Computed example of a mutant assay.
Amino acid sequence: MPAQTAQTVGAVPVLGAGNLVGATPATLDAAFGHPALLRVDGSAQVWLYHSPVCGLNLILYPDASGVPHVATAVPDNGDAARCTLSLEHPTTAAALEQRAAS
C-alpha cells in the first residue's frame, strides 16, 4: 500500500485519521501545535493532544536516519476521524479566539 501524505491548506498540513501514520513532528506541530504532553520512552516518543472531543495518543519511532514518524494513533473516543478534526488548528484556534469589541 503506498504511503499517504498530508494535504495542505495554505502552509498548514491537513492531517486526517487516515494519514496520521507516517507523519513527522514538524507536520504534527504545524497541524496541531505542541502536544499537551510529550514523553520519551527509549527510542519511542508519545505525544498526547487534547480537545473537547477527545484525547489523541501518537506513538512515534525514529526511521533509519533518526527522524521520528507516527507509528500508531490512538484516540480515546474510538473515532479517529472526529478526534483528528477537533484537533486541527482552524477548529481549535477559532474556538479560542476572543470576540472583537464593537
Rank of each mutant, 00 (worst) to 15 (best):
A3C: 00
V46L: 11
G42A: 08
G18S: 09
P68Y: 15
Q4I: 03
Y61P: 00
V12Y: 02
L28M: 02
S86T: 13
L48W: 06
N19H: 01
V9K: 14
P35C: 06
D63I: 04
T8N: 08
L85I: 07
A71V: 12
A6Q: 13
R39W: 02
G18T: 04
L56M: 14
T5I: 05
Q45I: 03
V46Y: 10
G42S: 04
D41I: 06
P2G: 01
W47S: 12
N19W: 02
Y49W: 11
A95E: 09
L96Q: 14
V12K: 06
V14I: 10
A80C: 10
A73M: 03
A26V: 12
W47H: 11
I59S: 03
R82D: 09
P25W: 03
T27M: 14
L15N: 05
C83S: 13
A81M: 09
D63N: 14
S51L: 11
V70H: 03
T24W: 07
E97P: 00
L85V: 04
V74S: 09
A64T: 03
G33H: 04
V67E: 14
W47I: 00
P2I: 02
L87N: 05
A3T: 10
A3N: 05
D29Q: 15
C83N: 13
V70S: 05
I59T: 14
T8W: 04
P2M: 11
A36M: 07
V67A: 09
R39D: 13
A11P: 00
F32L: 11
E88P: 00
E97T: 12
V40D: 05
D76A: 06
A81N: 14
R82P: 01
C54M: 08
A93L: 10
E88G: 07
P62L: 06
G10N: 06
A93Y: 13
L96M: 07
T72G: 01
V67I: 14
I59H: 07
Q7N: 05
V67F: 00
L20T: 06
T27G: 09
A93E: 11
A71T: 08
V21W: 00
N19R: 01
T5E: 13
L48E: 14
A64N: 07
N77D: 15
Y61L: 15
H89L: 10
A30N: 11
L38M: 13
V40Q: 11
S102W: 08
C54S: 15
H50R: 15
N19P: 01
L38T: 13
S86M: 04
P52A: 06
D29L: 15
T84S: 09
